[in-house]
Design a protein around this nucleic acid. Structure first.
Lengths: 239, 239
DNA sequence: CAGTGGTCTAGACCACGCA
DNA sequence: GCGTGGTCTAGACCACTGA
């Protein structure tokens, strides 16, 4: 792993453990460079990552500070800025339960072939999960994954965490992901499983996940109850 | 302006003008560094910006290429990655009309005081606009702006573009912005102006814009018809 | 004015793609 | 193996903050 990512992870860990307290100033970049036995440019790059993730902020001429919201993100808010590829987020895992509604293997349709960049006869896993947060129906996930890229998915994996399985069991590193968000009217499944009334909108999130190599490995469409989820993101000035 | 931003602007301009054609390879970083009389690190940083904006992509060992969607973003899709602070986006301005429904000056309520970081007795502009795209109602905007930071707003400015006024007339440079997206049920205004039925959801976007200095200068809540807008964004691996 | 972050350079080494 | 991009260094200069 690149040094600047390692440094970013290390500093993130310290924030999580309270070694660098909220609203406090971090050591200056020169000191950090000495400590991590690297150059200031590399430290800067690591801090840029943490800034993009909303953990710290800098004031030129003054220092780098831990953001006061670094430790407690809103429970029902999905933070877009958090990079799923960098092992852990600061936020603790929520009490999220999964009920597998469907799990099968089939061939992809045309749209799936296109977004996953695969051929007509490439087998894919297809699963639908109802996600339950603190005992309340939270979202309905529809997911398609090529078998060849992520082999060995089982019902047990689906009940736990697919991403954890990919990262920890298969040792695969995530790359970027592309998401599209829209509002939509509830369909029959949403009414049945999420308890939506005719006038209860859903927040639909369509997502394509890529490996570090650039190959797409997951296509999903998730329906959220409108009153349980919002998505927020920071649009940054490039520095 | 920092050199890497200037280089990013220059290359963006070339893409826009077709000097670097779609799906074609850009000159290598070494050549670009020579041409712009700068170092390769600076070129790399400029290209990182364009990558984040979705204009180019790189393949290690091969080169940097212009994305095929660089010139035509989907009409009804709001691209989150595009940085509003860098003068122009490649996409041309759409035929977007504005009808001012309300325009007044008042004192801010508690929530506005907090997000805009101002006091109880700081005057703010408050305006509501109906945005019309190609003759069809598109969105309802509710906006609050401190008078002291962005003076001289008029109905004429509101009918044109407020951002254009801020950038070109006041010479103010934008910084980052924070957005939150959720699905919601239509309210009375949505039904009246956007023509929403009881079962037509809206996509609500709450936004706080910041100046380059870090001071917030605009708080807005925008309601979009669910069938006219979707938001997409690329979540990048930090490189 | 000292301390801190923002930017930039010139050169180096490595990993990857492609012929 | 050569050309490409990805990363890193050591040092420099500037802009800004705050005493």
């Amino acid at each position: 792993m690149a040094k600047y990512k390692e440094v970013a992870e290390a500093i993130k860990k310290r924030i999580k453990e309270g070694i660098y307290a909220v609203e406090e100033r971090l050591p200056d970049q020169h000191s950090l460079a000495e400590e991590f036995e690297t150059s200031r440019v590399t430290i800067k790059k690591a801090l840029d990552i943490l800034t993009a993730q909303g953990l710290v902020y800098t004031i030129q001429g003054s220092g780098t500070y831990v953001k006061k919201n670094a430790l407690h993100h809103s429970q029902s808010s999905i933070q877009i800025g958090n990079n799923v590829g960098l092992t852990t987020t600061v936020r603790d895992e929520l009490d999220l339960e999964s009920k597998v509604l469907e799990f099968k293997v089939r061939f992809p349709d045309e749209q799936e072939q296109e977004v996953l960049m695969i051929h007509e006869e490439t087998p894919v896993y297809h699963y639908e999960r109802l996600r339950i947060l603190d005992g309340k129906p939270y979202s309905l996930e529809h997911t398609v994954v090529p078998v060849a890229i992520i082999p060995g998915i089982t019902k047990k994996v689906l009940q736990d965490s697919v991403y954890k399985y990919i990262r920890e069991e298969l040792g695969i590193v995530f790359g970027e992901n592309r998401q599209t968000v829209r509002a939509a009217q509830p369909n029959a499944l949403d009414k049945e499983y999420l308890g939506c009334k005719e006038t209860d909108p859903i927040l639909e999130v369509e997502k394509v996940m890529f490996l570090e190599s650039g190959a797409p490995f997951e296509y999903s469409v998730v329906h959220h109850r409108f009153d349980m989820v919002e998505m927020s993101f920071l649009n940054q000035e490039f520095k």
